[in-house]
Nucleic acid binder design. Structure first.
Length: 308
DNA sequence: GACTGTGAAAATCTGATCTT
DNA sequence: AAGATCAGATTTTCACAGTC
């Protein structure tokens, strides 16, 4: 139902909704949604983000944030924050989608996507948060906590494979429907990726703990650009990488190269979203032709289900 | 049709083990 | 000794199927 879909988009995760430590994150989200004029750039919410994370992390350090809040609440918050900014700047209605078929795997779950329904996913955004201060539950962690770079590569690789599989899956459907071919990659993977739908982006907010940690984060993000349409970073750190800024946490942003700057990338995404809104309005013929076609992964799944 | 149990998947974090 | 890599833990959410 339509009402259900709309509710899905606005639904708030349990940890973020109820968690005691997540109160500052909730409040910031509400402020961003209520503000006039509507904030649509990272710069407009950057300070609120840093202050909210300081309060959240102070609860984490005090041992007052449960596993659920650390692992789900924080991620949901960043996800919702990004979605709010992009909805404000593009007017597109962004939702979560599940069961979207790729070429190899038959169902992917997509965080922030447009449009909410139909066979053609135009734009896909993966939002990730990384880095945690040391807290009572992590005895072995160093004083600065876990470096942001520690988990970046693994998670970017997962996101990268997902986008390639989705682009491959849509390319398959297009060629089967005899539409303008966006065939498989031949020769230059990056060139193919850039012209294949869905437009795919990674946005990550990373708590960095040292110059080398920061350098590693930028390097991985820069490499990842070859597999995505763009990668955006919001890096923040304890002020000056100073131990005195660890507890209570005092954070500041760290400037990243322009090519991976979240401000820059958000602007690009909102342009793509506006294009996509027009595409969806004008190209319903493509939608109809592709709608009945299954990728090999989808077909295989139906086959095995039937035999069960 | 609405409710409920179940299993898969995703989000992030943690600790151990290799490398340099 | 520090950094990089690998494997796994914990919690939450959602689709799906079965039941009233």
């Amino acid at each position: 139902m339509l009402g259900r879909q709309a509710a899905l988009a606005k639904k708030i995760g349990q940890s973020l909704r109820d968690g005691v430590a997540s109160e500052s994150l909730r409040e910031h989200l509400e402020a961003v949604r209520a503000a006039q004029p509507k904030p649509s750039s990272w710069a407009a919410v950057e300070d609120g983000f840093l202050r909210a994370m300081e309060v959240f992390d102070s609860h984490v350090i005090a041992g007052e944030a449960g596993e659920g809040e650390r692992q789900n609440g924080k991620g949901d918050y960043f996800n919702d924050l990004i979605a709010a900014l992009l909805e404000h700047s593009s007017g597109a209605d962004l939702t979560k989608r599940t069961g979207v078929p790729g070429l190899i795997f038959d169902r992917h779950s997509l965080d922030v996507t447009y449009p909410p329904q139909g066979s053609i996913v135009e734009v896909l955004i993966e939002a990730k948060m990384l880095g945690t201060p040391k807290h009572p539950g992590s005895v072995k962690a160093k004083a600065f906590g876990r470096p942001g770079a520690a988990d970046l590569l693994k998670r970017f690789k997962e996101a990268g494979f997902k986008t390639i599989d989705l682009k491959g899956g849509y390319g398959y459907k297009q060629s089967q429907a005899n539409l303008a071919v966006q065939a498989g990659p031949s020769g230059d993977l990056t060139s193919w990726l850039r012209q294949a739908k869905p437009k795919s982006f990674i946005l990550a907010a990373v708590r960095v703990v040292s110059e080398s940690d920061f350098a590693a984060v930028v390097r991985v993000a820069d490499s990842m650009q070859q597999a995505m349409d763009a990668v955006g970073l919001a890096c923040y750190r304890p002020k000056g990488f100073d131990v005195d800024s660890l507890n209570p946490p005092a954070y500041e942003m760290v400037r990243v190269p322009r090519s991976v700057d979240i401000n820059h990338v958000l602007h690009r995404i909102s342009q793509d979203l506006r294009d996509a809104v027009r595409n969806v309005a004008e190209r319903s013929a493509d939608e109809d032709r592709v709608a009945g076609i299954e990728t090999p992964a989808e077909a295989a799944r139906k086959l095995t289900q039937g035999e069960d």
